[in-house]
């Protein structure tokens, strides 16, 4: 390992393999389905809209992943729920 790589490694942490793996898995699902990245974006928007109609979610952090652990691959949607202050006052505890 050269000094350059060593220094890079110190700052970057683990090797570049994980990046290769993740990028490949993503691109291959699109390749296999014949989906373009625009279609993928459209899917993301649709999902986001549908969920937020019922649950408040953090739209910036919605992630769609394809998981290959099982065949066929699964679509995993990660949509963090936004913490909402209750607007309606909580029912008061009746004393006794």
């Amino acid at each position: 390992m050269s000094w350059g790589t060593l220094v890079q490694r110190l700052f970057r942490g683990k090797g570049s393999k994980e990046e290769a793996r993740n990028r490949l898995q993503m691109v291959l699902v699109l390749d296999r389905l014949g989906l373009s990245s625009e279609q993928m974006e459209a899917l993301r928007k649709d999902i986001l809209e549908t969920i937020s109609r019922h649950i408040p979610i953090d739209s910036e952090r919605v992630k769609i992943d394809f998981v290959h652990q099982h065949t066929p691959a699964e679509v995993v949607i990660n949509a963090p729920v936004r913490r909402v202050r209750p607007t309606v006052e909580a029912p008061k505890h009746s004393a006794g």
Binding site: M1, K14, G15, S16, K17, E18, A20, R21, L24
Partner: peptide, 11 residues
């Protein structure tokens, strides 16, 4: 592979 800079057989 050992350095984590190449996909291994399982990957």
């Amino acid at each position: 592979v050992r350095r984590g800079d190449m996909l291994n057989q399982q990957d």
